[in-house]
């Protein structure tokens, strides 16, 4: 089922949580809503679910205006950030809840409920824990039970609020791969909210970047990473180095050095900000031989998430991250250059 939100505005007192947001969520895709905390992503998710109502704007589910539909009628599955498992019910009863509270006419027989819950517990690989209580589960297990519970009512869309937020680093990596696989099996239209760029880029089919209640960019993970549409996206996604300078002769002049600029259309002499990914900077061991920026290696950090055959260095005058092909000892002078930033 497709989801469309149109011109959504939401304020809490004087705080603008959502400022005229229009977005399409295509059928069967897993979309990540990414942004810093307070950017409005959770509010948007809750408005889509019907847990919050917008001050203005509409929500369309499958093309039909659902803005005034009660959350009960929207047939959405919602996974809460802290799971909101019913603590006085067993895992089994938690998953069965949505089926058992259906109006008498639509309520499946208890035997049907039983087999359906079993199926779901198999799906999330927790059949063995059916009789446990939520407090007896680990965070990752609770998360999966919350998902099974949401799926039990066969929702038309699945909404997940910071699904891995409360988990430790190792579990969240496992679980997000698992979620991706699960989505490939179920193909249910899903939206999940996260503030973790790595998570959004790894799991989603599409990423929506939000900041200050506005949508900054929408696109496939690779697209938003490689062609950031705004300085915010550039600095929010991935490691980036920032150079303040002035444009002259297709170069960004930074103090005594300069970096070539790929784009045209800058006014000569204009003040500009250069965003450079670490891997886009070439390292020259002889600073005198390069037209780029001279720097001194101040500290070498021999670790990093994507470090394979390079190293992270901290340089004077600014803290700059780059990947040096060969080891550069601290204190050595280097030059940096790029081919069009």
């Amino acid at each position: 089922m497709s989801i469309r939100v149109q011109n959504i505005i939401k304020q809490f007192g004087s705080f603008v949580a959502l400022d005229d947001v229009t977005l399409d969520f295509p059928t069967g895709k897993l979309v990540g809503l990414l942004g810093p905390s307070g950017c409005g992503k959770t509010t948007l998710l809750r408005i889509i679910a019907g847990l919050e109502s917008a001050d203005r704007g509409q929500v369309f589910l499958d093309g039909a205006d659902a803005s005034n539909a009660h959350v009960r009628e929207r047939q959405v599955g919602f996974v809460f950030q802290h799971y909101a498992l019913f603590r006085h019910m067993t895992v089994f009863d938690n998953v069965a809840f949505g089926l058992r509270v259906k109006p008498r006419g639509q309520r499946p027989a208890e035997s049907v409920i039983h087999s359906r819950v079993r199926e779901l517990l198999d799906l999330v690989q927790l059949s063995a824990l059916a009789r446990r209580y939520p407090t007896q589960l680990s965070g990752g297990q609770r998360q999966r039970i919350a998902l099974a519970r949401a799926l039990a009512v066969e929702p038309r869309v699945l909404l997940l609020d910071e699904p891995f937020g409360a988990l430790d680093a190792k579990v969240r990596k496992e679980l997000r791969r698992w979620l991706r696989k699960l989505h490939d099996v179920l193909h249910i239209t899903s939206i999940f909210v996260t503030h973790d760029q790595e998570e959004a880029l790894e799991v989603s089919d599409r990423v929506v970047l939000m900041n200050h209640g506005r949508v900054e960019q929408v696109g496939a993970p690779q697209e938003v990473y490689e062609q950031p549409a705004s300085p915010f996206v550039y600095s929010f996604l991935g490691a980036v180095n920032l150079f303040h300078g002035r444009i002259q002769d297709h170069h960004l002049h930074v103090s005594e050095g300069r970096l070539p600029v790929g784009h045209n259309g800058f006014q000569p002499g204009a003040e500009a900000l250069g965003f450079v990914r670490p891997h886009e900077l070439d390292i020259e061991t002889d600073p005198a031989a390069t037209a780029g920026i001279a720097a001194r290696v101040e500290r070498v950090l021999a670790f990093g998430p994507t470090l394979t055959n390079g190293q992270r260095v901290r340089l004077k005058p600014a803290r700059i991250r780059l990947f040096a092909p060969e080891s550069q000892p601290a204190g050595s002078l280097i030059g940096m250059d790029g081919d069009g930033i």
């Binding site: 009960r72 919602f78 909101a84 019913f86 006085h88 809840f97 259906k102």
Partner: peptide, 25 residues
Amino acid sequence: REEEEAAIVLGASGWQTFWRVTLPN
């Protein structure tokens, strides 16, 4: 309020939410 909200999202009525989720807690 999360547990109550979860119950409502899962289709429970107000009374069902109160009797089955709030009160037992």
